[in-house]
């Protein structure tokens, strides 16, 4: 398969140029646009595999552009915005965006998210779902092979970490307290649990999440426990 093409659209040309450099390093083709209108034009002219879209732009803003794109296409859209409030994120995602990254962003994290979104194209078809595989989003757990994959990439886990992930993925969407997780995974009462479970969970997040502070899969429900998000 050839190079994937990413459309970068932001009214700040410095950001567009920087993103071009990063994306090229990651072996993507880059199409640049500076307004929503230019972005739509570029989309109509060539095949684009992913769109990076700023919200606050002249002529047509990011949200309106997202709606326009979604009318015709199903390609991944990642919104880049200086607005960091939860409501902004939710609005963006509701308008049809696949991810929402706030400025100023960490280039590595953004690249990880781009990769994660484009992997759908590359691994499409090869991911024939085998029986017994637990899956949420692009996180897969194969109990037979005792293997966890993120975006198709295997992740190395210790035995305890694997136990925790397995337990949570078997009960996807349910919240478990530290004690419950300890009792299920360690199979013993939680007198000595202390903060072992939280520490393990943090380490798991660091391995499977693009941004461990804002996890996509393994979420912290503060003051209640942890859960594996069902996506």
């Amino acid at each position: 398969m050839g190079k994937l093409t990413v459309l970068v659209c932001d009214d700040d040309s410095a950001i567009v140029d920087a993103l071009e450099i990063y994306l090229k390093q990651e072996n993507y083709e880059v199409v640049k646009a500076y307004t929503g209108v230019q972005a739509l034009k570029a989309l109509s002219e060539r095949e684009i595999h992913l769109v990076l879209l700023d919200i606050m732009m002249p002529e047509l803003d990011g949200l309106a552009t997202t709606i326009k794109i979604r009318e015709e296409m199903n390609i991944p859209i990642i919104i880049l915005s200086a607005k960091s409030e939860d409501t902004d994120k939710i609005t963006g995602l509701n308008f049809g965006a696949d991810d929402y990254v706030t400025k100023p962003f960490n280039p590595l994290e953004l690249m990880a998210r781009v990769k994660s979104q484009t992997r759908r194209y590359t691994s499409l078809g090869s991911l024939a779902s085998k029986n017994g595989i637990l899956k949420t989003g692009s996180l897969e757990l194969d109990p037979e092979a005792r293997e966890l994959r993120v975006d198709g990439e295997p992740v190395k886990l210790t035995a305890t970490e694997y136990g925790i992930v397995l337990f949570l993925m078997q009960n996807m969407g349910r919240v478990f307290s530290i004690d419950q997780i300890y009792e299920h995974v360690w199979n013993e009462p939680s007198y000595t649990a202390e903060n072992t479970v939280p520490v393990h969970i943090r380490r798991i997040r660091e391995k499977i999440e693009i941004n461990p502070r804002e996890p996509k899969y393994l979420k912290v429900v503060w003051g209640v426990g942890y859960k594996m998000e069902k996506l």
């Binding site: 939860d86 393990h200 003051g223 209640v224 942890y226």
Partner: peptide
């Protein structure tokens, strides 16, 4: 700021936080 009030176990919360800050 929106406040979504639920039951929060302080001990659980502190343990989680300590896990993060370990």
């Amino acid at each position: 700021l929106a406040v979504c009030v639920e039951k929060v176990d302080l001990h659980e919360l502190v343990m989680q936080a300590c896990g993060e800050y370990e």
